[in-house]
Amino acid sequence: MDPVGFCTQTRLLIVAGKGGVGKTTVSAAVARMAADAGLSTLLVDVEGKGGLPAVFGYDELLGYEETVMAPQRPGAGEIRARTLTPDDALLEYLEEHGMRRISRKLLSSGAIDVVATAVPGIKDILVLGKVKQLEQGSAIDLIVVDAPAAGHAVTFLTSASGLLDSVRVGPIRAQAQDVVDLLSNPARCQVLLVTLPEETPVNEVVETAYKLEDRVGVSLAAVVVNGLYPPRPGLDADPAEVAERQGLRLPATELEQLRAAARFRLGRAALQAEQVTRLARSLPLPQLPLPYLFTTEVGWPEVGILARALAAGVRALPIERAASSSGTVDASTVSPRP
């Protein structure tokens, strides 16, 4: 499948995964992949954290207004980003429903918290309701939502269907219905899962995948396996023997450093390979591998590398996935094997 096809299967792509797996980086890489393919992209941050703008070299936090993160380049689309926190969404909702005058007071008196408590998930629904508005209204080719971490991602995406069970009337119910319609429609919305090739993150992504599929009926696009040590052939020999064969005498400490580093990498790579296999067995979703970049901070050049790796993974996907909702896990025929 070509990246344009992948990025235009649905206008909305929600990136979900547990904390620390690189969800924000992957969101940025998807946006860059889409932009590089000529599409305009909007990144939506629902937690108001600084990680997303930092990837694009911005020190300041994002605001409620869209900010250009990467301007249009020849042959490439623009990347914009904005926040959409629950409080933002709630205020906007109240204002749109003729409650502008009392909305601030509702917030400041704490009364709104009582109601938000009485109707669980109302804030998630308002956030997703606003996302739906963006999805339907804007001229943007792809909207990438950096979802809340881990367990919260499931809550975030299941709130709407939960609310349909408990609130029977009113505009909030209508809003929840709209959100459920959006999330469960494979032509409009997909979830991209992110994990690391490690024991616990793999367990959690499998669990999350089945929960999302069962409870929301959301279409799962693929699972991104982040942080894979890039292959480096030639490390499995003993550097001492290699040196000797070449008639070289290296200091013992240096040989030991070379040997230890090689052993470490081979060991971690073997563990990662095991987890990748286990993930493939437990979760029948295509995997998109991303390399570990040996850096502690991802910036624009690194996002470029990741975007190209992502595009390569996408090109390796079978083409027929584009046409239908075959990206979903069929829970009736596949049982989880954690």
Binding site: R232, L235, V242, A243, L248, Q257, A261, A262
Partner: peptide
């Protein structure tokens, strides 16, 4: 022959 080891380190 030794390059991968140095690059890795």
């Amino acid at each position: 022959a030794l390059a991968p080891f140095y690059a890795n380190l």
